[in-house]
Simulated assay, not measured.
Amino acid sequence: MSWLNVKHATYLDPWIRVPLMWPEPGLEDVEAAQSPQAWARIFAEAWWEDFATEKPRPGEVELLTDILVMHANRAPAICPGFDVFLHLPHPRDIPITVFVDLLEIEEEDCDTALRELTHADADYAIEPPIVEKFDSPHLGTGLRVLRYFQDEDSNEVHAGLRYAWRYESGSEAADVLILLSHPEPGRIIRAFPDIDEFARTIRISPDEEADTWKSA
């Protein structure tokens, strides 16, 4: 059996992995893994130190801490079971929440499945989605789909981005999905290089590597 390996994405800047439970299993002695508040405070301070050329104004570390706590509490419930990452290139930016998971195959035809997973033919999009093949060194060729849609609550135009692949190895088969959306379309467009790099780090690893955090 194999597992979805997102470990390498944790080494990329400017990405933050959001733990799915507290304290995080196996990290009971790590302060940042004990609670959303501890995790958020540590990362808020680190992000201002690492990604800002200026010092934070009064209250800005606390503001980012509150934003991260909100994401830690809410994001895992949006797509239960998905791994969750935040794209945050500057501590004053609004994070992009990215979800990643390995899915049981529901549609046998690969092309049809990838189009369904990426919403390549979404009838709710305000213009035809931009559908492109996307190559991964670990997952092969999949699809990347960018679409624009109107939010039902605010009527604002949002951007959504999805990546999908069919993974097959011997008797094992599954679909891999990455999804995200944002109320500021330009924010996703500017983040494209980082998101593409992130997507190309995702891989499927054999069970024997499950306990090796830095396995290739």
Score class of each variant (00 low, 15 high):
residue 1 M to L: 02
residue 2 S to T: 15
residue 2 S to R: 14
residue 3 W to N: 03
residue 4 L to H: 00
residue 5 N to L: 05
residue 5 N to A: 03
residue 5 N to T: 04
residue 6 V to Q: 01
residue 7 K to R: 13
residue 9 A to T: 02
residue 9 A to P: 03
residue 10 T to H: 00
residue 12 L to A: 04
residue 13 D to T: 15
residue 14 P to A: 08
residue 15 W to F: 14
residue 22 W to I: 09
residue 28 E to K: 13
residue 28 E to P: 07
residue 29 D to Y: 10
residue 30 V to T: 05
residue 31 E to S: 13
residue 32 A to Y: 12
residue 32 A to F: 10
residue 34 Q to V: 10
residue 35 S to V: 12
residue 37 Q to D: 07
residue 38 A to N: 14
residue 38 A to R: 13
residue 39 W to Y: 08
residue 41 R to A: 08
residue 47 W to M: 09
residue 47 W to D: 03
residue 47 W to P: 02
residue 48 W to V: 08
residue 48 W to I: 09
residue 50 D to S: 14
residue 51 F to L: 10
residue 52 A to K: 13
residue 54 E to H: 09
residue 56 P to Q: 13
residue 58 P to H: 04
residue 58 P to M: 01
residue 59 G to M: 10
residue 61 V to W: 00
residue 61 V to Q: 00
residue 62 E to A: 14
residue 63 L to N: 09
residue 66 D to Q: 15
residue 69 V to Q: 04
residue 70 M to H: 12
residue 70 M to N: 13
residue 71 H to K: 05
residue 71 H to A: 03
residue 72 A to I: 12
residue 77 A to V: 11
residue 79 C to H: 14
residue 79 C to N: 14
residue 80 P to A: 06
residue 80 P to C: 08
residue 82 F to S: 09
residue 87 H to M: 05
residue 88 L to V: 10
residue 88 L to N: 08
residue 88 L to M: 07
residue 88 L to P: 07
residue 89 P to E: 13
residue 90 H to E: 07
residue 93 D to P: 08
residue 93 D to T: 12
residue 96 I to A: 00
residue 99 F to M: 11
residue 99 F to L: 09
residue 100 V to L: 09
residue 100 V to N: 06
residue 103 L to K: 15
residue 104 E to P: 12
residue 105 I to C: 13
residue 106 E to T: 15
residue 110 C to Y: 01
residue 110 C to W: 00
residue 113 A to L: 05
residue 115 R to A: 12
residue 117 L to S: 12
residue 118 T to C: 07
residue 119 H to W: 14
residue 121 D to Q: 02
residue 125 A to W: 01
residue 127 E to M: 03
residue 127 E to K: 07
residue 130 I to T: 13
residue 130 I to C: 11
residue 131 V to H: 02
residue 132 E to I: 04
residue 133 K to N: 14
residue 133 K to F: 12
residue 133 K to P: 11
residue 134 F to C: 12
residue 135 D to G: 00
residue 135 D to T: 05
residue 140 G to Q: 08
residue 141 T to R: 10
residue 144 R to E: 02
residue 151 D to V: 14
residue 152 E to K: 10
residue 152 E to A: 11
residue 152 E to S: 12
residue 160 G to F: 02
residue 160 G to Y: 03
residue 161 L to D: 06
residue 162 R to G: 00
residue 162 R to D: 00
residue 162 R to W: 00
residue 163 Y to V: 04
residue 163 Y to C: 03
residue 164 A to P: 04
residue 166 R to Q: 06
residue 167 Y to R: 09
residue 167 Y to W: 04
residue 167 Y to V: 09
residue 169 S to Y: 12
residue 170 G to I: 08
residue 170 G to L: 05
residue 173 A to P: 10
residue 174 A to N: 06
residue 175 D to W: 00
residue 177 L to G: 15
residue 179 L to W: 03
residue 180 L to S: 13
residue 182 H to N: 06
residue 184 E to P: 05
residue 186 G to Q: 06
residue 188 I to C: 01
residue 189 I to G: 09
residue 191 A to D: 01
residue 192 F to Y: 12
residue 193 P to Q: 05
residue 195 I to H: 01
residue 195 I to W: 00
residue 196 D to V: 03
residue 197 E to I: 01
residue 197 E to G: 06
residue 198 F to C: 04
residue 199 A to S: 09
residue 201 T to L: 10
residue 201 T to S: 11
residue 202 I to H: 00
residue 206 P to W: 10
residue 207 D to Q: 12
residue 208 E to H: 13
residue 208 E to P: 06
residue 213 W to E: 08
residue 213 W to F: 10
residue 215 S to I: 08
